[in-house]
Amino acid sequence: MYWYKLTPLDVLMFRDAKPFSPQERAWAGSVFPPNNHAIAGALRSSFGINGNITMKGVFLCCDENLYFPRPFNYVNQNRLTPIAWLDDNHPSQRMIWDQSKPVPLVIDHKQLTDQKNEDRGQDEKVYRQFLPSDVILKLLKNEALTEEDWLVDVDKEKKDKPWIVETRSHNTLQDGTRQVKDSDGYFVENAVRLLDGWGLAIAVDELTDKKLSQKVKPLIMRLGGEGHRVLLERWDVFDK
């Protein structure tokens, strides 16, 4: 596979799959990061690539590293464990819960013993919502993570979530007036602005890479709604 990095040149807008009409609801739902169908469609329309496209991604990337959503079974740096997996003498085993529902998840008190003497600065720590690939690899190998693995690298990653949502309204005025139309005249949607240093990463098959390599550089691709664009660049740091 051949890797590419997508760097936004402006905000990006991706509406969700819900039917939308300003007459029915004035808020257009959005989704981010986009799925690979949106990227494949952009590649075809911007560069005239026909046929099948084999793709990996879409991933968030920063400083030559891929980022993945943090596991849902963690609160800050503490892992949630089903009570059925805990020792029989664990206090949570005394819980009464609906057996027809999923097993409750709790934080094992053993994980908290090392945190009793932490200072009051704990509340000021910012935990990553997206983890770099080396941290994900540790989780897959069932290795213990350090606190630094969970905390945001402010100098490089900036924030816990690498984008800002900007709400934008759209108005259509009545002809010859300054009044907004009663129907189809107003709706609101969200635009996403990635933080500096962040981008999107994809990997494509050899044939698609050859077609892209024949195009005039730089590769500018329309992506998402309203014609916003990204810079498409080869990112061979992950080529294997």
Rank of each mutant, 00 (worst) to 15 (best):
M1V: 00
W3D: 03
L6W: 03
L6I: 08
P8T: 08
V11S: 14
L12N: 11
L12G: 01
L12C: 10
M13H: 14
M13F: 12
F14L: 12
R15H: 15
D16N: 15
K18R: 15
F20R: 12
S21Y: 06
E24P: 00
A26P: 05
S30N: 10
V31H: 04
V31R: 06
P34E: 11
I39G: 04
I39F: 10
A40H: 03
A40L: 00
A42T: 02
A42H: 06
R44E: 01
S45P: 08
S45N: 12
S46D: 12
S46R: 05
S46I: 04
N50W: 04
T54C: 07
K56H: 07
K56R: 15
V58T: 03
C62K: 07
D63E: 10
Y67E: 07
F68I: 05
P69M: 02
R70H: 01
P71M: 13
Q77L: 12
Q77W: 10
Q77T: 13
R79N: 15
I83W: 13
A84E: 14
W85V: 09
N89L: 15
M95A: 14
I96F: 11
I96T: 08
W97R: 09
D98Y: 05
D98L: 13
D98E: 05
L105Y: 15
I107R: 15
H109C: 01
Q111S: 09
T113C: 03
D114M: 10
D114N: 05
E118I: 04
Q122N: 05
V126C: 09
V126W: 06
Y127Q: 00
L131V: 02
L131C: 06
P132S: 02
I136R: 12
L139A: 00
K141T: 01
A144Y: 11
T146R: 08
E148P: 04
W150D: 07
W150E: 01
V152C: 02
V152R: 06
V154N: 09
V154E: 15
K156G: 00
D160R: 12
I164K: 15
I164S: 07
E166L: 12
S169F: 07
H170Y: 11
N171A: 07
T172P: 01
T172L: 12
V180M: 04
D182C: 01
D182T: 10
G185Y: 11
F187L: 05
F187Y: 14
E189R: 05
E189S: 08
N190K: 09
R193L: 14
L195M: 04
G197T: 03
G199A: 02
L200V: 08
A201P: 12
I202W: 05
A203K: 04
D205W: 03
T208A: 03
K210E: 11
K210F: 09
S213L: 11
V216C: 13
K217D: 05
K217P: 06
P218E: 00
I220N: 00
M221V: 01
L223C: 05
G227C: 02
G227F: 11
R229Y: 09
R229V: 11
L231I: 03
E233Q: 14
E233W: 06
D236W: 05
V237A: 11
